[in-house]
Simulated assay, not measured.
Amino acid sequence: MNNEQQHALLRKMAQLMRSGLETQTEPFPETEKEFAAILDELRKLDPNNVQGKMVISGFVDHPYGPDKQRCMECMYYLVHREWCDLPELAVPVDADWWCRLWRI
């Protein structure tokens, strides 16, 4: 994906969330088994189904939870690319977004 395509996809994702896309922010996976179950759901999707990825992974366009977690502090976030490097997601993300696959 080139830089222009990445920015277009980022804008599309932001617009979906602004438009009220309902995502599965709960339950947050507390165990590796629960985390793996979400990854299994994501693997069943067409890799180009970004909206499906967003719904299953629980994307929101703001810091989330009592600790105000965000992509910026997630182990999968690539700062210089503004990218989620979790293979099952592999999408551009804003530093202030969050999803339930967040990990430190």
Rank of each mutant, 00 (worst) to 15 (best):
G58E: 08
R18S: 04
Q6L: 07
L21E: 08
E4V: 03
W97V: 06
Q51L: 01
V93T: 05
R70L: 07
V91L: 15
G52Q: 06
D61T: 10
D94S: 12
K12Q: 15
E26C: 07
M54V: 04
Q5K: 08
D40H: 11
P47R: 11
W97I: 03
H62Q: 10
N48C: 05
P63E: 08
F35E: 08
H80G: 12
M17T: 04
G52H: 06
F59I: 11
V93D: 00
L16C: 02
R11P: 00
C71S: 03
A95Y: 09
F28H: 11
D96T: 11
Q15T: 14
W102S: 02
I38M: 02
D96K: 07
Q15E: 14
A36P: 00
S57Q: 07
D94V: 04
K33V: 09
E41P: 00
T25Q: 15
V79P: 00
D40M: 06
M72V: 04
K68W: 08
Q15N: 12
P27G: 11
Q24R: 15
E82D: 14
P29C: 09
Q51R: 15
C74W: 03
Q69R: 14
I104Y: 01
T25R: 12
E4I: 06
E88V: 10
P47Y: 06
C99G: 04
L101G: 03
Y77I: 07
M17D: 02
V79T: 02
P63D: 05
E88W: 01
V93G: 00
R70A: 11
L78F: 07
Y76L: 06
L78I: 15
M75N: 11
C84S: 10
D67K: 12
L9D: 08
S19K: 12
D46T: 05
P92S: 06
Y64C: 01
A90W: 05
P92L: 05
G58L: 09
L39T: 04
D85I: 02
E22P: 01
T23H: 10
Q51D: 03
I104V: 04
P47G: 08
N2E: 11
H7S: 14
R18D: 09
M1P: 15
Q51P: 00
R70N: 10
E88Y: 05
L89G: 04
E30P: 00
V50F: 13
N3T: 15
Q15Y: 07
R70W: 02
L16M: 14
R11E: 14
V55N: 09
R43Q: 13
E82M: 12
K68R: 13
D40A: 15
R70H: 09
T31N: 03
E26L: 14
A90N: 14
H7A: 14
I56T: 06
L42Q: 12
Y77P: 02
L45W: 10
E32A: 08
N49G: 08
C71V: 02
A36W: 00
K53N: 05
V91Q: 14
M54W: 05
P92E: 04
W97E: 06
